[in-house]
Design a protein around this nucleic acid. Sequence first.
DNA 1: CCGAGCCATCGATACCTGTCAATATCGACG
DNA 2: CGTCGATATTGACAGGTATCGATGGCTCGG
Lengths: 119, 119
Amino acid sequence: MSKSLLELTPVEAVACCSPVTREPLSAEAADRIAPLLKALADPVRLRLLSLVASHADGEACVCDLNDAFDLSQPTISHHLKQLHEAGLLDREKRGVWVYYRLNDAALGDLVGLLGGVAA
Amino acid sequence: MSKSLLELTPVEAVACCSPVTREPLSAEAADRIAPLLKALADPVRLRLLSLVASHADGEACVCDLNDAFDLSQPTISHHLKQLHEAGLLDREKRGVWVYYRLNDAALGDLVGLLGGVAA
DNA sequence: CCGAGCCATCGATACCTGTCAATATCGACG
DNA sequence: CGTCGATATTGACAGGTATCGATGGCTCGG
């Protein structure tokens, strides 16, 4: 841990800590991790992430995602942005279309941080 | 899955689904799981959970938790209530004091649901 | 270079949430 | 009983967020 916690992106911060059940989380670490969980803590975003992750080739076009919900296109775009900014989804533009892909490491690290129990 | 998803508590709902990365989450499942994540998605609640889980004997008195934060007692009580109602913390009153304890199964199931990646 | 389609951003609005001070509740102990 | 200490509940307020319609920037095909 060479960099201060305060310099890390949310995703980076998750990879550097013991499971929350092992030792008390510092205030700084909690401030870094909470936004990641907040990004996940919405039914629409949970389904978006799940759709992207389980989609063929591991990526999904926004056009596909829009159709899966009874929500406006800006709303879906807004949720995707949150997941992207949290580091959970990677974004790639190819031609006219934009594809989102799950960041395996980010979700994996988050699970590791919470998962001291399952072990 | 004999009961409808709509009849389950948040904690119960988590134990019944494939990892979110394996197949698309239904809207009903997402509606059930999101509140659990929402309960975790706050820096104060993350630290509270961590403090309780890592405390000696696996339980912590509210009086100890209050001292760990620069927040009013009602605020801490409010956060503990959210964690308790989500099913993540169990509550037991002994004499004048109230003790909170981590619900291992709840957190474990949640991790399992998100953890299709780490495998 | 112009129109069409995909996606993001903006501005507005209604709702949710974190926080506190004040107050209630509930046991224990004189 | 009456008080005191530990928690919970209530009411109020500021800030955050989910949603939409309107609009703007891009890229491709003609």
